[in-house]
Each structure stands twice: as structure tokens, then as C-alpha cells.
Design a binder for these strands. Structure first.
Length: 531
RNA sequence: GCGGGUGUAGUUCAAUGGUAGAACACCAGCCUUCCAAGCUGGCCACGAGGGUUCGAUUCCCUUCACCCGCUCCA
């Protein structure tokens, strides 16, 4: 998509263009800014809105097995206890008082063959641990950073009123699972999608909007059957080793591994539809020790930002951890009834059930779980019920917007008719995300009949797309202004228009022009935008 | 959080212990028959606070923000 000129977008150039053209401003700039917060200007808000909308259309409207949710940002704090965000996820840190180096306390201890002392809230360093940089034992006490923003609900600021701004959108999906299930008339496998703000009090926001304290996510929780249920229903569980067809419709016999891979492929395919070329994206599989203890696997889709290759979206297989936690903390059963499972089980005799139970218990015990747990799970299955497992594709909206700007940014050297070289700055957005889709110009503005005709065309198109009107300056200048904000199509009304009712459509990327009858404009543009 | 760098107009960049300048952009007008044309006019800045000084955008201190490296990233 980009011209041959090697892409060394340094970030400052992007930041400058983003500001100059009204994409992204520093938050509160009037008062010196505030670290970790950014605002989207007139064009940025259009771009971001388009990204959200294209995602929603593709994920929620485009599929029959996903429904939407728009939950509150502030929720009952118990949710964060259940999810683990209040406790274990804040990493204890120590600093060396001598050389000022900072460590994750647990990692430093482990490195030196000892164990961090603590209960998940308060921590203490073991005696013999020293700074691995300078050897000093003069370390600070381990401090936990809880990255959730805290606030108070209601007029009284005491402990009972404490609440948190959500650090991810996903938990609301689990917390509302029991409401969504009956009202959506969906059954497993199905998913719930949510897009919205999240907040993390990052220790060190960095890299423009990439790591912000207030940010937006587009998350899906896709609920699937546990593999054991799949086996009972289908008599087998398809794994990646079976080489399943991931481009067709999802199949009942898919195990979690296939579902996870399917979602990775789905997400890659979607990125391509909004103009991120395959070769700009990198797939990174999390190593075992990066994984949260409950996660089965996690794949990041990364983009080559000017400041390095960094995560856009993570697709995690989280088992039934979250629903199980909420079941435990809320005392409400998160098990679903699965009719296909119920029917399959009703056809089994006792011997078959016992054989299945023994196999399952053996497998679970091998995985370090208790026999009791496994038996309870089997009993639930024999009733046709289970707690669904989940695959979670979680995308950073602001990160994607930034990636789209970086990807679109191009400085093209062109030679004009007189042989003079100049640089054309152009944002090569895919039309589906471009903030302005169409610009309309009168060739000159001091001829009323031309001007009025152009206004008519503008008003006609403005009903369908975000259009831009520009009458000032020479026509070439107006084209270039649109190039710089990434408008894919410019329409010029000229003197021929008055004769034959056709206009010039000028393409952003090629700068080519074609004449199109006004009556065909809508269809013509519609088609051109699909690319 | 540590180290380094930067902060002057919307952007990119000058200069200066005493009146802050340009280019581009933007706005208005004239002109303009397809790729940043021309003319006229206009708008807009020393990140914030304190100190030194007769006087500070300039020197000093503090602070805020951004960039780079480290660190961190449920």
C-alpha cells in the first residue's frame, strides 16, 4: 500500500501531523497537559468512530453468534475481587537504593533462588536477596502497584464507598452472563462483544497514545463447550492436528484449540479488511511463563510501530476461569444447559458414563487437579450442563487507530509538469476508516451556476457519507489538503458539468481522474469504497 | 521510577539580558477552467511557577509535558 520510499515514520512526525490536522491532541494542553491522556480532534474522532463501527458491524451484525453489550464503567467492586484485579495482579516492585535500579520483587527473588514473602497484599523481601546490578542489599520494601483508578460512590468517602474504574471491559461480560444468556436467545457456542473505555493507572505511560491511562478496548468473550462436552456430543474432539478447515463455518466437534486458532485467523483477516497489510502484522505466541496461570494459550497480533513491534490485540484461551470465579464470589451457578449434550448423555448407558468418568478423572489428576473436582464436573456434564470455556480476542482501539495512522502515513515524491520535484503527504487510509470519504469542490468559486451545482452535489452525497466542502484556493491545493487527511475521493464540478451533468472523480492514491454522471455518483462511490 | 534530550505562532525552525523573525499552514478579499500558482490584507508564540537583575524568552531553581534509552506492561 505504501510507496517504495522506505517507511521511517519517526513518531514525532506522526505526532506533529496528528496535531496539525486535528487527529490527536494532548489532553488538557491548555494547562500544560496531563500524562497518559489524549484527546481525539475533529478528524481523529471520525477515524476512531469508524474503527469502532466497522468492528461492530463485522463482529456483532456480521455474525449470528455474537451479541453486543454496553456496560457501566463503574461496577460493584466485588467484580474486581472475583477477577483477581484487586489482589494478585499488582506486581510487587523493589528499587535498589544505591544504584536506583528497579525490579519485579518476585522475579528478583526467584533469580537468586529464594521466595518473596507475602500474602498477596503485603510483601517482604527475604534477607539474602541483593541487587543483581550493584550487589547492594539496600533495597526498598516491596511495593504493590495496583493499577486500578479508585474513586468513591456517593457522598461519603469511606471504605464502604470505594469503587474502581474498570481496568478492562471484559469482566462486565462475565458479570452479565446470566442476563445475556436468556435474553439473547443464544446458546453455546456464542459470544458477547463490548467496546468502551477502560482505565489503568500505568506506572509509565509511553509512546504517544500507545500506553495511555484512559483508553478504549474492543473485546469479545466467545463462549465454547469444554472439550469433554464436545467429546460426549460428537464422539471426538477435533484438534489442530486434524487440520480443520478454519475458513468455513465453525463446527460442533471443534475443541478449544481449534476455536482459539479460528479466532486468531478471523482477527488477522479483519485487520486486512481495514487496510493493515498482512506483512505489517506479526503473530506472537506467549511463552509458558508469560501466561497467567489459568490461561491455556495466548497469541498476540502485533504491529510494527515506529517505536517497535507492539501488541494490537491479544487472543487468549482462558478456560472457564472467569465464570468459575464469578460463580464462587456470587454464589450463582454459571453452568449452562446444553440440549445437544443432554440428548447425547441420555443415550449413554451407565457403563459408558463410568468409563468416561474414569478417563476424565485420570486426565484431570494428571493436570494437577483433584479427583473431587473432576467427579463434580462429570456429574454436571451428565446432567447436560457445564460452565462454558472462553476465547477472548481483546483489541486496543486507540492502538489500532495509531497503527492505522502510522500505516497510512506516506510522503511521496512527485514531479510536476515543469519537472519540479515536491513531496506529497498522503494518508492512505482504507475508505472504510477514512475520516472524510468524499470532498466536493466547485472548480472556481466565483461562478454562481457552478457553485450552486457543486452545492447540490455536496448535499446529495452528504446524506450517505461524511463529506467535506472546500471552495478556497486553487484546485490542486484543495486536492493536496484532502490527501493529507486521507480523503479517498475528491469530486470537482466544472463547466462541463453544466453541459452534460458529469463530474470529475479524483482518486487519492493514484491521483487519476474519471468523469462520472451525477446520477451514477452514489453507486460509483459505493463500489469504489469497497475496494 | 532512573538516565539523556527537548519545550518560541497551528506546524517546522531562527534570533536575543532591553521592540521576538521567517517559511509553510490558516482566515478574508481579488484572481483562478484540474494537482500545494499569484497579489493584498489579517490572525497567532517564548509550557507553568519562583529567583537573580533596573530589566529574563535568554542566567539559576522548581515544576509540568513530550521524545529517546532502561524499567514496567493483569
Amino acid at each position: 500500500m505504501n510507496s517504495s520510499s522506505e517507511k521511517k515514520n519517526n513518531l514525532e512526525q506522526i505526532v506533529s501531523l496528528a496535531k496539525r490536522r486535528g487527529f490527536i491532541f494532548q489532553s488538557s494542553e491548555l494547562y500544560g497537559g496531563i500524562n497518559g491522556f489524549w484527546d481525539y480532534g475533529p478528524l481523529g474522532s471520525e477515524l476512531k468512530r469508524n474503527v469502532r463501527e466497522v468492528w461492530w458491524r463485522y463482529i456483532v451484525h456480521g455474525r449470528e453468534d455474537i451479541v453486543g453489550l454496553d456496560a457501566a464503567i463503574i461496577m460493584n467492586p466485588k467484580i474486581w475481587e472475583a477477577s483477581g484485579h484487586l489482589g494478585g495482579f499488582s506486581d510487587p516492585m523493589v528499587d535498589c537504593k544505591i544504584c536506583k535500579k528497579r525490579y519485579r520483587a518476585d522475579q528478583l527473588c526467584e533469580e537468586q533462588g529464594s521466595q518473596l514473602i507475602g500474602d498477596g497484599k503485603r510483601w517482604k523481601m527475604p534477607e539474602n536477596v541483593s541487587c543483581s546490578n550493584c550487589g547492594s542489599k539496600d533495597l526498598t520494601e516491596p511495593r504493590s502497584f495496583n493499577l486500578m483508578f479508585k474513586t468513591f460512590v456517593g457522598p461519603v468517602e469511606d471504605d464502604s464507598a470505594v469503587a474502581y474504574l474498570r481496568p478492562e471491559t471484559a469482566q462486565a461480560i462475565f458479570a452479565q452472563f446470566l442476563n445475556i444468556l436468556p435474553t439473547s436467545r443464544k446458546s453455546v457456542p456464542f459470544g458477547v462483544a463490548q467496546s468502551g473505555k477502560s482505565f489503568r493507572n500505568e506506572i509509565n505511560p509511553r509512546n504517544f497514545t500507545f500506553r495511555s491511562r484512559e483508553f478504549e478496548q474492543m473485546e469479545i468473550e466467545f463462549f465454547i463447550r469444554p472439550d469433554e462436552a464436545v467429546e460426549l456430543i460428537c464422539g471426538k474432539v477435533t484438534t489442530l492436528a486434524d487440520n480443520p478447515d478454519l475458513e468455513g463455518e465453525p463446527q460442533d466437534d471443534w475443541g478449544w484449540e481449534v476455536w482459539h486458532r479460528y479466532w486468531v485467523e478471523q482477527r488477522f483477516a479483519w485487520f486486512r479488511t481495514i487496510g493493515l497489510p498482512a506483512d505489517s502484522l506479526v503473530e506472537r505466541v506467549h511463552s509458558k511463563n508469560e501466561l497467567a496461570h489459568y490461561a491455556k494459550t495466548c497469541v498476540d497480533i502485533e504491529y510494527a510501530f515506529p517505536f517497535g513491534i507492539q501488541e494490537l490485540e491479544g487472543i487468549a484461551a482462558r478456560g472457564n476461569f472467569d465464570l468459575t470465579q464469578h460463580q464462587k464470589f456470587s454464589s450463582r451457578s454459571m453452568a449452562v444447559m446444553d440440549d445437544k449434550l443432554r440428548i447425547a448423555v441420555s443415550e449413554m448407558n451407565d457403563a459408558a458414563k463410568e468409563a468416561f468418568r474414569q478417563k476424565t478423572v485420570a486426565n484431570w489428576v494428571q493436570d494437577g487437579k483433584s479427583e473431587e473436582e473432576a467427579t463434580a464436573f462429570c456429574n454436571l456434564l451428565f446432567e447436560g450442563r457445564y460452565i462454558p470455556h472462553v476465547v477472548e480476542p481483546s483489541l486496543g482501539t486507540d492502538r489500532l487507530v495509531l497503527a492505522l495512522i502510522c500505516n497510512a502515513f506516506d510522503e511521496e515524491e512527485i514531479t510536476d509538469a515543469k519537472g519540479k520535484k515536491e513531496v506529497r503527504t498522503v494518508l492512505r487510509f482504507h475508505p472504510s476508516v477514512a475520516p472524510v470519504k468524499v470532498a466536493v469542490f466547485p472548480l472556481v468559486k466565483n461562478r454562481p451556476e457552478l457553485y450552486d451545482k457543486a452545492r447540490d452535489v455536496f448535499k446529495k452525497l452528504n446524506r450517505y457519507w461524511n463529506c467535506f466542502w472546500d471552495e478556497s484556493g486553487a484546485i490542486g491545493r484543495r486536492y493536496r489538503r484532502q490527501d493529507e487527511i486521507g480523503t479517498p475521493f475528491c469530486i470537482t464540478v466544472d463547466f462541463d458539468t453544466l453541459e452534460d451533468d458529469t463530474v470529475t472523480v479524483r482518486m487519492r492514491d493514484s491521483m487519476e481522474q474519471t468523469r462520472v454522471p451525477v446520477s451514477d455518483l452514489r453507486d460509483f462511490l459505493e463500489e469504489a469504497m469497497e475496494l
